[in-house]
Simulated scan of single mutants.
Amino acid sequence: MSIQSLAAVKAHFSQVIDEVAGTHERVTVTKNGSPVAVILAVEDYESLMETLEILSDPRAGTEIRRAEEEMAAGKVYGEAAVRAALAARRR
């Protein structure tokens, strides 16, 4: 993540946008030395929003914890079993 002043971002806005979109690096924009905004790629923003949505759902949190406990206990599935389960869902 880089930190740039508002003046620098304004002077090279198109370049900053291209860099953010191409590298997925965030840019923190400062005004009078204080951070005031962050520029990030749309894909990264959407990913953050999806993560927040999942984490705010208590049922999803419970399912994630249960899955982690099952993995820690060695209850895992191989590729063939996963493919078979997915194929069964499609029917």
Score class of each variant (00 low, 15 high):
M1F: 13
S2Y: 07
I3D: 00
I3A: 04
Q4T: 00
Q4D: 05
S5A: 08
L6S: 03
L6W: 05
A8C: 03
V9R: 05
K10Y: 02
H12W: 05
F13D: 01
S14W: 14
S14T: 13
Q15N: 04
V16E: 11
V16L: 04
I17M: 03
I17V: 15
I17F: 09
D18M: 14
V20C: 15
G22R: 15
G22E: 10
T23H: 14
T23M: 14
H24W: 07
E25W: 14
E25L: 15
R26Y: 04
R26T: 04
V27Y: 01
T28N: 10
V29K: 13
V29N: 09
T30Y: 05
N32W: 03
N32C: 01
G33P: 03
G33W: 01
S34M: 00
P35I: 03
V36R: 12
A37W: 14
V38K: 08
I39W: 13
I39K: 07
I39T: 03
L40G: 09
A41Q: 05
A41T: 03
V42K: 13
E43R: 10
D44G: 09
D44I: 15
D44P: 12
Y45V: 11
Y45Q: 12
E46W: 02
S47N: 10
S47I: 03
L48T: 09
L48I: 13
M49Y: 09
T51M: 13
T51Q: 12
T51R: 12
L52I: 06
L52N: 04
E53R: 06
E53V: 00
I54Y: 02
L55G: 03
S56N: 15
D57W: 01
D57M: 06
P58S: 11
A60Q: 06
A60I: 02
A60M: 12
A60Y: 08
G61A: 04
T62P: 00
E63A: 04
E63Y: 02
I64S: 06
I64M: 03
R65S: 08
R66M: 00
A67D: 09
A67I: 02
E68N: 11
E69C: 05
E69N: 09
E69K: 11
E69I: 07
E70I: 00
E70D: 13
M71C: 04
M71E: 06
A72H: 02
A72D: 05
G74M: 03
K75P: 00
K75Y: 08
Y77G: 00
G78P: 15
G78Q: 02
G78E: 07
E79F: 09
A80D: 10
A81P: 06
V82N: 14
R83T: 00
R83K: 13
R83I: 05
A85H: 12
A85K: 05
L86N: 07
L86D: 08
L86P: 06
A87M: 11
A87P: 07
A88G: 04
R89W: 00
R89N: 07
R90P: 06
R91Q: 14
